Simulated scan of single mutants.
Amino acid sequence: MYAMLAEWAPPWERSKMAAFVFTAVFLFVWRRGRVSRRGICLVGLCESGKTLIFSQLINKKAVESFTSMKENVGVLQIENKGALKLIDVPGHERVRQRFFDTYKTTARGIVFVLDSFSLNKDIRDVAEYLYTVLSDPVVLSNRPQMLILCNKQDHALAKGPQVIQSVLEKEMNVLRNTQTNQLEAISEGGNRKSCYLGQEGKNFEFADLYPQRVEFAASSAQTEDLEKLKKWLQSVA
């Protein structure tokens, strides 16, 4: 039918019709891909509390956690939204990228868990891992929603989400400059790679990653305070 209409339509009408068909097909494919992505990846350094959070959500209880070299996978039922596949990605640097590569294509959301109490000591490692996740080509393409979960808030000296965001942005800015200089040094003719995070010409801010949405929230898996995480999961599902 489209072919018959296009044959008799003026050129400008054919262009409109073609644009309409292209848009419809694009939206169909995009929505289909989004529906098929039902995974939530829990990522972060070792001892950030990922496995305890996983256990609280999936098993409704705390279990003794230890550094694991394999992932934990469970199904999380979200009221009125269906099921999400929760993946606790190992934090050990030798295996975390391999497991993240396995699940990132189906990720609807990513929860980056960090230790709010030991952040000063681990800030460089946290920023480097977070930078790797955010600049991943699949993440840049699919743009899953991301929550940076500031865990272990039960410690008296733990930093709050706003302070952590500010500290991370400063460290990410330094890291971005370093990464960009390294890429330019090894690229032919000094061409910049397309994975530059944020806006050029200004300091790094998570808000500049739009349309990639990055939120911050506090939690304490040890005291079973995961309400903000649960609300986020409800909104993402």
Results as ranks from 00 to 15, higher is better:
Ile164Tyr: 05
Arg37Ile: 01
Glu224Gln: 09
Lys159His: 08
Gln145Glu: 09
Ser194Asp: 09
Glu227Leu: 06
Arg108Tyr: 06
Gln153Asn: 04
Asn72Asp: 07
Leu134Tyr: 11
Glu128Asn: 03
Lys230Glu: 14
Thr223Ile: 04
Ser166Gln: 05
Tyr210Ile: 00
Thr67Ser: 14
Gly39His: 13
Trp12Met: 07
Ala9Cys: 11
Glu71Gly: 05
Leu157Lys: 13
Arg96Val: 05
Leu5Ile: 12
Thr106Asn: 12
Cys150Lys: 08
Ser116Asn: 10
Pro10Asp: 06
Val111Ser: 10
Arg98Val: 12
Lys202Gly: 04
Leu76Phe: 12
Asp208Met: 01
Phe216Tyr: 02
Pro10Tyr: 02
Leu5Arg: 15
Val25Tyr: 10
Lys121Trp: 00
Val163Lys: 09
Leu226Cys: 09
Gln97Tyr: 07
Leu119Gly: 13
Gln153Ala: 06
Trp232Asp: 11
Asp136His: 15
Cys195Gln: 14
Lys16Thr: 08
Val25Pro: 00
Val126His: 09
Lys193Phe: 00
Phe100Ser: 13
Gln179Val: 15
Val167Leu: 09
Glu227His: 04
Phe117Arg: 15
Glu171Arg: 14
Ile87Pro: 11
Asn142Tyr: 15
Lys152Phe: 01
Arg176His: 01
Val113Met: 09
Gln162Ser: 13
Val35Asn: 07
Glu169Phe: 01
Tyr210Met: 04
Gln182Phe: 03
Ala19Phe: 05
Lys50Pro: 12
Ala221Ile: 01
Ile148Phe: 07
Val214His: 10
Glu215Met: 14
Ile186Cys: 04
Arg34Leu: 12
Leu140Cys: 08
Glu205Met: 15
Ile53Gly: 06
Val75Asn: 12
Met172Ile: 07
Met4Trp: 05
Met1Gly: 14
Lys61Thr: 07
Lys152Ser: 05
Gln145Pro: 03
Ala185Ile: 00
Arg37Met: 11
Gly49Cys: 07
Glu200Ser: 05
Lys16His: 01
Glu7Cys: 10
Asp125Trp: 01
Arg143Cys: 15
Ser194Trp: 03
Arg31Phe: 15
Arg32Glu: 14
